Amino acid sequence: MKLPILAGIIVLSGTLLAAPVLSADKSITPDGKPAPSQPHAKPGSKAAEDEAAAAKTPYETVRDVFTGDLTVAGEKVSFPQQNPSVRAIEITMAPGEVTGWHQHHAPLFAYMLEGEITVTYEEIGKKVYRQGDGLLEAMDVTHRGENTGDGPARILAVFLLGDDGKAVVEEPAPGSDKAKVQ
């Protein structure tokens, strides 16, 4: 079969019909599944070496605590553009202690140093966080936390402030009459 005729058979009404297996197509594996984001990052390959070099730190032991750009409520994090600053606090909650309902109008990364807390999010439900967990907390979702563990809960909270955002903004409890009638 001549190449021009084959090209005419493959292209039909402006749509390219793919052959079952194209060795030059690296985006699909032979079994039809999408290829990994680093298709050439096979152990010992140059891409694998580059990946390892990029992840290398000057520290002996590293554990990835959190990586992501979405809060626990699925909000896309956006960093302050004006007056950026960082505030880090350690929060200690006694067993059974409950926070007030609140929101964070600035990105907040939290790391559970000790214990367990259960956070109730308006319209989302409850999530439990334990020692060693890292999270990007909800910003514009009303929530409250409760120490549901047997001992103290300690949380490292790192706020990325700016844009006149406040670290913690008190909110009425979900379901309460947020608009007062006079």
Rank of each mutant, 00 (worst) to 15 (best):
L16T: 10
S13T: 11
A47P: 12
T67L: 07
Q103V: 00
D31P: 07
E114Q: 07
K76T: 08
S45G: 04
Q103D: 05
G74D: 01
N83P: 02
K33R: 15
K33Y: 12
Q81Y: 09
H40F: 14
P58E: 15
K26F: 04
L108Y: 05
G96S: 00
G68H: 11
K46P: 05
I10V: 02
Q82E: 02
T92M: 06
T71D: 10
A53R: 12
F66R: 05
A48S: 15
L113R: 08
P80Q: 03
P95K: 03
A19I: 12
T71C: 10
A35H: 15
F109Q: 01
V72M: 00
E114W: 11
H105A: 05
A47V: 13
A94N: 12
A53V: 13
S45M: 06
Q103T: 00
Y59I: 00
A19F: 12
V11Y: 14
I89S: 09
G32T: 05
F66I: 02
F109C: 02
S78G: 07
T92P: 04
V119M: 05
P58A: 00
K33D: 07
P20K: 10
V65M: 04
P80D: 02
E122R: 05
P30Y: 13
D25Y: 03
A106Q: 09
G115Q: 05
T71Q: 01
E51Q: 07
T57Y: 11
Q82A: 04
A73H: 08
L12Y: 14
E49D: 14
N83T: 06
K56Q: 13
S23N: 12
F79D: 10
L12I: 15
K46T: 07
V62L: 13
E51P: 01
L113A: 13
V65Q: 11
R63P: 15
K56N: 07
G115C: 05
P80I: 05
H40T: 12
M93L: 05
Q103M: 02
H102L: 06
P36I: 04
G100Q: 12
T61K: 07
E60T: 01
Q82Y: 08
G32I: 03
A35N: 07
V119W: 02
V65F: 07
R63S: 14
